[in-house]
Design a binder for these strands. Structure first.
Lengths: 185, 185
DNA sequence: CCCTCACTACCAGATGGTCTAGCATTGCGC
DNA sequence: GCGCAATGCTAGACCATCTGGTAGTGAGGG
């Protein structure tokens, strides 16, 4: 934390002007990044004609395939947090759209193995490979100190998000905190 | 990925190993933050018993209210990118759940004005106020230099996301790029 | 051996949020 | 005053999800 000077007794903090200004700028940048990433995901999803669940499923399948694992409908449904029934229809969609196929499990004749097609791999690589390379270039171009600052900041923000259990705020600070940079409800 | 050493003259990053390591750490931190934020949004949404669209609608209503603007179903639907029919049922839901009410437009008798209830304002404040204050504290605690580094990094990442129009990547970099830090498809 | 219980994937019916198409009311330019 | 645009709503359909139930298979105990 950094409320050095003047902490007027209130227990709650009032960031000094320069700090507050800086904080707003940082949070704005974070929010803008978040918006851009969300928009990118939507574009990608639409360009592949899929919904969010299908997208996550394909990604999971590709990751598992690359790691040499073989996963079935049950694993997929569990990972995505959907019911087994929804998993069945999800796989139907992926098979119909040519992004995956069903194979028999080698030993357990009850089970299946779901495998991504080479097409889906190429498709994802085509839509995201260049972008990821460019993100990597930006990240790698940071100086040691800047990289540490960024990582530390992101880590601390993540801790705030993880820790938060929806407590009641002081209230009465009505229009001071939530304007503009609000964490997008 | 990371076509390492032996890229002289290119003006692009020189000593790859440390840079690549740093880049991976940065992108991992970014991805972890993103995951935490997504999870937080899901928690908040579920604790309020709403879906994503309703959430965005309430946020938009509260922002507009605070800015002294009065918005109608048309504005809401446009902002959220849904049809006028969906907007009607959305407002029905918000009214039924007590988060908004319909008022007549003061001059245009065709139009309505949708206003958030004081209850929804308090609810959002209760679920997010404390968290936002803590995020602000973290952001304000950054040194001037660190804040600039963070903002610059986020801005450049956003530019990558915005600029990208899904080009075909070099391909053949097969299994290097998508591991671990992949931009979550 | 076979009986039972667990597991795996699937099917059937219901629900919720979205869509397109069309309609009633009102505003506004000519 | 008339015709066109705009606003919000209704009707009917679609799609992804859910719950509950079912057939086939695996594994272990009488």
């Amino acid at each position: 934390m950094a409320q050095q000077r003047s902490r007027p007794s209130s227990g709650y903090w009032y960031a000094p002007e320069p700090d507050r200004e800086r904080g707003l700028n940082v949070l704005n940048a974070l929010r803008d990044y978040r918006s851009a990433e969300t928009a990118m995901r939507r574009r990608t999803r639409e360009s592949m004609g899929m919904n969010e669940t299908d997208m996550l499923a394909v990604r999971f399948l590709l990751q598992a395939e690359q790691a040499g694992e073989r996963i079935g409908p049950k694993d997929l449904g569990t990972k995505l947090g959907i019911s087994s029934a929804s998993t069945t229809t999800l796989i139907d969609r992926l098979v119909a759209s040519g992004h995956a196929r069903r194979e028999d499990h080698p030993t357990d004749r009850r089970a299946l193995v779901i495998r991504p097609t080479t097409g889906s791999d190429a498709e994802v690589r085509a839509t995201l490979g260049g972008m990821h390379a460019r993100m990597m270039a930006v990240a790698a171009s940071l100086s040691d100190g800047d990289a540490r600052a960024v990582i530390d900041f992101l880590t601390r923000m993540r801790e705030v998000l993880d820790q938060d259990e929806h407590q009641i705020p002081p209230a009465g600070t009505s229009s001071g905190a939530a304007e503009g940079t609000g964490p997008s409800v």
